[in-house]
């Protein structure tokens, strides 16, 4: 399976995980994802905004316009209580999946 396909299935988990640390705007998310994954993940930018807007519609994140340290107005995405709960479920699912994969691969 390619990295792109793996990323496609985990975009929501990765985005919520980042936003649980601090609210971020779109381009900041791309850079932060790249930094935290030591350059492994370069989020396809064309999928970022549809994913964020979908999560906003589902109530997992909230978009609020506020002024960035640079003085420019940005839409910051904040994780909601529903988003926190969804992330906890996703993390649990991910841990079970990763454990199962490593058991099979290493056996």
């Amino acid at each position: 399976m390619s990295k792109r396909e793996l990323l496609k299935g985990s975009t929501e988990t990765l985005l919520l995980s980042l936003l649980t640390r601090e609210p971020m705007y779109g381009y900041q998310i791309v850079k932060e994802m790249e930094k935290r994954s030591s350059g492994y993940f370069r989020l396809p930018e064309g999928t970022l905004y549809p994913a964020l807007h979908r999560m906003m519609k589902d109530g997992l994140v909230e978009g609020r316009w506020s002024t960035a340290p640079s003085g420019q107005l940005r839409r910051y995405y904040h994780i909601t209580a529903d988003g926190q709960k969804a992330l906890a479920d996703m993390q649990q699912e991910w841990a079970a999946f990763a454990r199962a994969v490593s058991l099979v691969v290493q056996s």
């Binding site: 705007y25 779109g26 381009y27 905004y49 807007h53 420019q72 107005l73």
Partner: peptide
């Protein structure tokens, strides 16, 4: 307008 502004900023 919000979507366009966000994309332009990006």
């Amino acid at each position: 307008a919000e979507v366009l502004r966000e994309l332009a900023d990006h």
